[in-house]
Structures are given as structure tokens and as C-alpha cells.
């Protein structure tokens, strides 16, 4: 009885120590990119890990890279980054700020898919901005 508290405390400590150990089990896969735009300087939330392979197999490029045109595009046949055009501060030509562009592109589409009753990606803040990535990258 006397040691019960001690044992409990030990269990709690071990359990807590286990959390970071789990989170470090990361597989590095090809075609997976971390969306870290330099335009934000310092990110408020953990950066988003984006599976480009997955998306390019199910969507046409133009869905996201909406300036993309193999014959006439801004980036010589490759897809542009969002931040190429969208800036932190919106201007007259590009009224959608970068943050909104990111969010609309990912979350907006995911939400639409959910609305249509189809398989979709995450929509809750922390399901994209996952903490465990932040510990690796920073």
C-alpha cells in the first residue's frame, strides 16, 4: 500500500516517456513533401505533410495547379508553387492571400469530397498540422 503511489507515479512517467518515442517512428516516403513556405517566415502551426503522389494519381494537375498549361505556363512545364503568385498580403491581381490559398486548396477540396459522400482527406486543423512532424523538422 505504501508503494502504491510510487508505482503509480512510475507508470505515469513511463507512459509519458513513451509518447515521443512513438511519434518518432516516421517512414520517409518519396513524393511526400512538407509544405513549408518561406513567405510565412515563422509558421504558427506545425507544417503540413502533403502526399503529392497520392494526389497526382487521383486528380488532374489543373485541379490544384490552376495556372498549369503544358504549352504556356508560368513555370516552364513544371507546376508552380502556390507562393509563386499568392502572397501574404493580397493585391489587386491576386486577391487570395497565401494562407487562404493553401487552406482553400486542401481543406476546401476535402470538404467538397465529404459533401459528395466520397472518400476524402483530413479537414480538422490538427489532422494536417500534426505536431509530430514539427519535432522532426525544426
Amino acid at each position: 500500500m505504501k508503494y502504491l503511489n510510487l508505482i503509480l507515479a512510475l507508470v505515469v512517467v513511463i507512459a509519458l516517456a513513451g509518447i515521443p518515442a512513438w511519434s518518432q517512428q516516421e517512414e520517409v516516403l518519396q513524393g511526400i513533401m512538407d509544405l513549408k513556405s518561406k513567405a510565412f517566415v515563422q509558421h504558427q502551426r506545425p507544417s503540413v505533410r502533403f502526399d503529392h503522389y497520392l494526389h497526382e494519381t487521383i486528380l488532374r494537375c489543373r485541379v490544384c495547379h490552376h495556372d498549369f498549361n503544358v504549352f504556356n505556363n508560368r513555370n516552364e512545364g513544371k507546376g508552380s508553387k502556390c507562393s509563386t503568385c499568392h502572397k501574404q498580403k493580397p493585391n489587386k491581381d491576386i486577391p487570395v492571400p497565401l494562407l487562404t490559398a493553401f487552406h482553400k486548396q486542401c481543406k476546401g477540396c476535402h470538404e467538397n469530397y465529404a459533401k459528395w459522400g466520397r472518400t476524402t482527406g483530413p479537414v480538422m486543423c490538427g489532422t494536417c498540422h500534426t505536431k509530430k512532424l514539427a519535432s522532426n523538422d525544426n
Binding site: 486543423c125 489532422t127 500534426t130 505536431k131
Partner: peptide
């Protein structure tokens, strides 16, 4: 708890 993604994030959110 949700912001700090403590254990089950979806549940907390």
C-alpha cells in the same frame, strides 16, 4: 488539449 494534439486529437477537437 486539441491545439497541443494531446493523444486523440480528433476526439478532443
Amino acid at each position: 488539449l486539441a491545439y497541443h494534439q494531446f493523444s486523440n486529437y480528433k476526439f478532443w477537437l
